[in-house]
């Protein structure tokens, strides 16, 4: 009976080296959004201010994965749902919130560009950038083009972006933000 070795859960556990109250990998549909969202609300009730921020950041980033991840799961009703990872880490002074998902290489440059612009701006400039972008015509799904800007404003820290090439067509894109307690 060694079928448990097909998935190396011990490695997975060991690799989550800090205190990680929440980790999820898989398709992100509305039930998962709701389940993790309310878990965040309850687990972070000790730090309501940070908890609210993490909730807002979670919704924006998880919804991005759900809509735009290059890795899709097809449900029974033929609906395509994006897959990815969501992790929350905790230290004494802060929470870190990390998401990761596959992105098509042709889409990666625009995401990196936008993240670099965001990281180069101070808070006032970032608000101006938000106002500019929000005025643009709505994107697909009614998007306001300001998800990442809002994440940076809400966390009040720079976005930590990492891109790891996977194959000719895909990269793994991860974004980490720090939220002070």
């Amino acid at each position: 009976m060694d079928y448990s070795k097909q998935i190396n859960i011990v490695d997975y556990h060991r690799n989550l080296d800090q205190n990680v109250p929440i980790s999820y990998k898989g398709p992100i549909d509305e039930k998962i959004l709701q389940a993790i969202g309310s878990h965040i609300e309850s687990i972070l009730s000790d730090h309501p201010k940070a908890g609210k921020k993490i909730f807002k950041i979670f919704i924006e980033l998880a919804q991005n994965i759900s809509y735009y991840s290059a890795e899709k799961s097809i449900y029974k009703d033929k609906k395509e749902i994006g897959s990815g990872m969501v992790l929350i880490g905790e230290t004494e002074e802060s929470y870190s919130f990390v998401t990761g998902n596959l992105v098509r290489n042709e889409d990666i440059l625009s995401i990196i560009d936008k993240s670099e612009i965001i990281n180069s701006l101070d808070r006032e400039e970032l608000r101006e950038y938000k106002r500019e972008q929000r005025k643009l015509p709505k994107g697909p799904k009614g998007g306001a083009h300001i998800g990442l800007i809002m994440v940076a404003l809400t966390s009040d820290n720079p976005l930590d972006i990492e891109v790891t090439p996977i194959d000719d067509d895909h990269s793994f894109f991860s974004i980490a933000v720090k939220i002070d307690k």
């Binding site: 807002k56 924006e60 709505k138 799904k141 009614g142 306001a144």
Partner: peptide, 12 residues
């Protein structure tokens, strides 16, 4: 008490 960014676009 809370709205996401696409709601914020429609509020605009």
């Amino acid at each position: 008490s809370y709205f996401n960014t696409s709601s914020s676009r429609s509020l605009l």
